[in-house]
Simulated scan of single mutants.
Amino acid sequence: MAKSKSLEACPVYKTAMILDGKWTILIFRDLLANKVVRFNELRRSLGSISPKTLTERLTELEDQGLVSRKVYAEVPPRVEYSLTEKGKGLSAVFDSMAKFGDKWLR
């Protein structure tokens, strides 16, 4: 079944598609809280996420222009992730989610 034209034009739908995926919201949570995060810091924070899944999610977010990846020429290699301006634009969504959770889910 094809998506309807009105669904494709819906900004709520488009934003939900960005946040779709098992770990995406928690990756955003950590990047919003910590500004710059290394790969292994994200892994530890997220608990049971596999390195492959984390790499896939970060790559998807980078491809969408939401996450920036910076590689340092060091041994061992150091890679840091941060939100782009576009990614930071989602902070209000997460603020609202936190307020909802504090009020209704405690």
Rank of each mutant, 00 (worst) to 15 (best):
T59P: 01
S50K: 11
G47A: 00
L61R: 06
E74T: 08
E60V: 07
L42V: 01
A33P: 04
L66F: 01
V75R: 13
I49W: 03
D63L: 10
S48E: 11
R43Y: 02
T55C: 04
E62G: 05
N40H: 14
S68R: 06
N40T: 15
G65A: 07
E56F: 05
R44T: 14
N40P: 00
S45A: 12
T59A: 09
L46Q: 04
R44C: 09
S45P: 05
R57N: 07
E41S: 11
V71F: 09
V37R: 00
S68N: 10
V71L: 10
N40G: 02
V75A: 14
E60M: 12
A73Q: 15
K52N: 15
D63I: 03
F39P: 03
P51W: 08
K52S: 15
Q64S: 09
A73R: 15
K70M: 14
R38S: 15
L66D: 00
I49A: 03
P51S: 07
Y72L: 14
K35H: 11
V75P: 10
S50F: 01
L54D: 00
K70G: 05
V75Y: 09
K70C: 11
N34F: 14
V71Y: 08
S45W: 00
F39L: 05
T55A: 09
T53N: 12
N40F: 13
K35T: 10
I49H: 01
F39E: 03
D63P: 01
E62H: 11
K70E: 13
S68D: 08
V75K: 13
E62A: 10
Y72W: 15
N34I: 10
S50P: 06
N40S: 13
G65Q: 03
T59G: 04
K35I: 09
R69S: 10
K35N: 11
L46Y: 03
V75L: 15
S45H: 07
T59S: 08
S50R: 12
V75M: 12
P51T: 02
L58F: 01
E56R: 07
T59I: 08
L42D: 01
A73M: 12
S68Q: 12
A73V: 13
V36N: 12
V67M: 04
L58Y: 03
S48R: 14
L54K: 04
I49L: 04
T59Q: 09
S68C: 06
K52Y: 15
L66S: 02
T53C: 07
T59M: 09
T55Q: 09
R57I: 02
E41V: 08
G47D: 04
V36P: 00
R44W: 06
I49K: 03
V36E: 15
V37M: 06
A33Y: 08
V37I: 07
E41Q: 13
R57M: 05
A33M: 07
E60Q: 13
R38Q: 15
T53F: 00
L46V: 02
L58D: 03
E56S: 09
R57S: 05
E41K: 09
V75N: 13
V75S: 13
T53M: 10
G47R: 01
S45G: 08
G65T: 03
R43Q: 04
L46W: 01
E74F: 11
I49Q: 03
L66M: 00
R43H: 04
T53V: 09
P51I: 02
V37Q: 02
G47H: 01
N40R: 14
T53S: 14
T53K: 10
E62N: 10
